[in-house]
Design a binder for these strands. Structure first.
Length: 442
DNA sequence: TCTGGGGTCCTAGGACCC
DNA sequence: TCTGGGGTCCTAGGACCC
C-alpha cells in the first residue's frame, strides 16, 4: 500500500513564537539570536528578503539593523519548548501515528486513512494550530519520508499552494516539473559539501538526483545517499520512529560570555554544565559509563594561540549522580588544562549510556547510586527545584555560587517566560510598554 | 634490503540535521 | 570587541590478533 506521510513544520519557528505575545511585531523585520547573542538563528520573512543568511554573526549586521530597524531577541528556549509541545499536541489529534522530528517539525502518518482528503486536512491543521497556539505552519505530503520534506518546501516557497502541498494529488510529470525547479541542496541529507560534489557531476536539481543511478550514487557517496535517491523515486527506505529511542550521548556546552584563563573558572563552568547534562540523563532514566570534556580557544581569532584538547574518563561504575559525574569531569580537566590560553568555550559529554537498573553489578568497588535511596532522593529534589525555579537555582557544589561568573552567558534582549511562569504572564495593557522597551534595545 | 593477509574493534573526524 | 548548541550516522584508518 502506498504510504501517505505528512510533514508539518512551523514557519520561522522562534520568530513566530516571539510574535505570539507581541502581535505588534507582525510584518516587522525581526531575528532571534543564538546563545550569547552570537549569531542569527531565526529570521522573519522580512529579514530573509534582505538577504541575511542563517548563522550570520550579529555584530556583522549592525549597519543593516540600523538601516532597516531590525528587532533582535535573545533566544528564549523555555518559551519555544513550551509552544513546541502545544503545537505537537494539536498535530497529534489529526493522525494515529506521529513522529516528532525536531522542536518545530512533526511527521504524521495517514497511511491507515486512504480515503482522507489530505489537502483539506492540511488546511484544517493550519487553521487549528494558528487558532489554538498562534503560530503559522506549512504542510507537505508524499509517499516516503524524504518526499514530504520537499513537498513542504514547495508549499512554502512556490506561490499558489496556500501552505499545503500533497504530491499524491499530482501527476508524475507534474511532480518532475516541480522537482526540476528545486536545487538539490534542499533534499534531506544533501548538505553543502555533497551538493558541491554533485554539482561537479552535473547533478544540480532534485530531478537530476532522482534520475541518477542509486547504486552508482551509493558507491561514490554513501549508503545514506543511495537510500535518499531511492526515496525520491518513491521507494520507501526510511521508517518513521514513533517512540523516540533514548539518547546515546548527552552534551552540554557553552561559549563563555567573556574569555576565561584559569583552571578554577573552567572547573566552575564544567560543574554547571555537568549539572545540566546529569539532569537530562536522569530525565531519560539512564546512567553514564564514561564522562568526556573538551575546551576550546577562539577558532575565529587565528592570532590567538590555539588549543583544543579533550579527554574522556571511565567511571568506576555507571552512575547518574551529579557529584560523581562532576568529579570525573574535574579529573579530566586536570589532565588537559594548560596555563596561558584564552579559553572561549567548554563542554561536557556523557557517554556509554545505559538503562538505569539493568547494568551489570560490580564485583568490587562502588555500586551504583540507585541502591542508595538518600542519594536518589537528593538528585530528585535537585531536578524538581531547578525545574520549578529555573536552571542553576540549586547546585551540588558551592563553587557554583562564586561571583562574578565571567563565563556566564550573555542574553541582552530576552522576552519573558510568558507561558511557564505566573509572574511573567503577558498583561494586555503592558503590550505598548514592552514594545517601546524592545524598540529601544536595538 | 627484503617485509602476508584477513578479520575485528575502536576512535577520530566528517557530514549532516535542526 | 563581539562568530550557537545538541544530536545522529558513516567511514577511514590504526591497533591488534592469528
Amino acid at each position: 500500500m502506498e504510504r501517505r506521510i505528512a510533514l508539518v513544520d512551523v514557519n520561522n519557528f522562534y520568530v513566530s513564537c516571539e510574535r505570539v505575545f507581541r502581535p505588534d511585531l507582525e510584518g516587522r523585520p525581526i531575528v532571534v539570536l543564538s546563545n550569547n547573542d552570537g549569531c542569527v538563528v531565526a529570521r522573519s520573512a522580512e529579514v530573509k528578503a534582505l538577504g541575511v543568511p542563517m548563522g550570520l554573526p550579529w555584530f556583522q549586521m549592525k549597519d543593516l539593523v540600523r538601516e532597516h530597524q531590525i528587532l533582535a531577541f535573545s533566544s528564549n528556549y523555555t518559551l519555544y519548548g513550551d509552544l513546541s509541545s502545544r503545537v505537537m499536541a494539536v498535530l497529534g489529534q489529526f493522525a494515529p501515528d506521529q513522529e516528532i522530528y525536531s522542536i518545530d517539525e512533526s511527521f504524521l502518518d495517514f497511511t491507515p486513512q486512504p480515503q482522507l482528503d489530505l489537502t483539506a486536512t492540511g488546511q484544517a491543521i493550519r487553521h487549528r494550530v494558528k487558532q489554538w497556539v498562534g503560530v503559522p505552519v506549512s504542510v507537505g505530503i508524499g509517499s516516503t519520508t524524504t518526499l514530504p520534506k520537499l513537498a513542504n518546501h514547495i508549499a512554502k516557497k512556490q506561490p499558489g499552494w496556500n501552505g499545503v502541498c500533497d504530491l499524491g494529488t499530482l501527476t508524475r510529470k507534474n511532480i518532475d516539473d516541480l522537482l526540476a525547479r528545486i536545487e538539490v541542496r534542499e533534499v534531506w541529507g544533501v548538505g553543502r559539501k555533497t551538493a558541491m560534489k554533485l554539482a561537479a557531476q552535473g547533478i544540480v536539481t532534485v530531478a537530476d538526483l532522482k534520475t541518477a543511478d542509486p547504486r552508482r550514487i551509493g558507491e561514490r557517496y554513501s549508503v545514506v545517499m543511495e537510500r535518499t535517491v531511492r526515496e525520491l523515486r518513491g521507494e520507501s527506505c526510511i521508517d518513521l520512529e514513533e517512540d523516540a529511542p533514548p539518547r546515546q550521548q548527552i552534551i552540554a556546552s557553552r561559549s563563555f560570555g567573556a574569555p576565561v584563563w584559569t583552571e578554577a573558572e573552567l572547573a566552575e563552568s564544567l560543574r554547571a554544565y555537568k549539572g545540566r547534562a546529569a539532569e537530562k540523563l536522569r530525565h531519560q532514566h539512564s546512567v553514564a559509563g564514561r564522562v568526556g570534556i573538551w575546551l576550546e580557544t577562539n577558532r575565529h581569532g587565528l592570532q590567538d594561540a590555539q588549543y583544543h584538547p579533550s579527554a574522556t574518563l571511565p567511571l568506576p561504575a555507571p552512575s547518574d549522580d551529579t557529584a560523581k559525574l562532576t568529579q570525573a569531569a574535574i579529573a579530566a580537566l586536570r589532565q588537559i588544562y594548560k596555563d596561558g590560553f584564552r579559553y572561549t568555550k567548554a563542554g561536557v559529554m556523557l557517554l556509554e549510556l545505559g538503562d538505569r537498573g539493568v547494568e551489570q553489578g560490580q564485583l568490587f568497588g562502588e555500586h551504583l547510586n540507585a541502591g542508595d535511596p538518600a542519594r536518589t532522593a537528593l538528585m530528585d529534589t535537585l531536578d524538581r527545584v531547578n525545574a520549578k525555579w529555573g536552571k542553576g537555582t540549586l547546585g551540588i557544589s558551592s563553587a557554583e555560587l562564586q561571583q562574578p561568573r565571567r563565563w556566564a552567558m550573555k542574553h541582552g534582549t530576552m522576552t519573558p517566560a510568558y507561558t511557564t511562569r505566573w509572574s511573567e504572564l503577558a498583561i494586555v495593557s503592558e503590550g505598548v510598554k514592552a514594545y517601546k522597551k524592545a524598540s529601544a534595545m536595538t
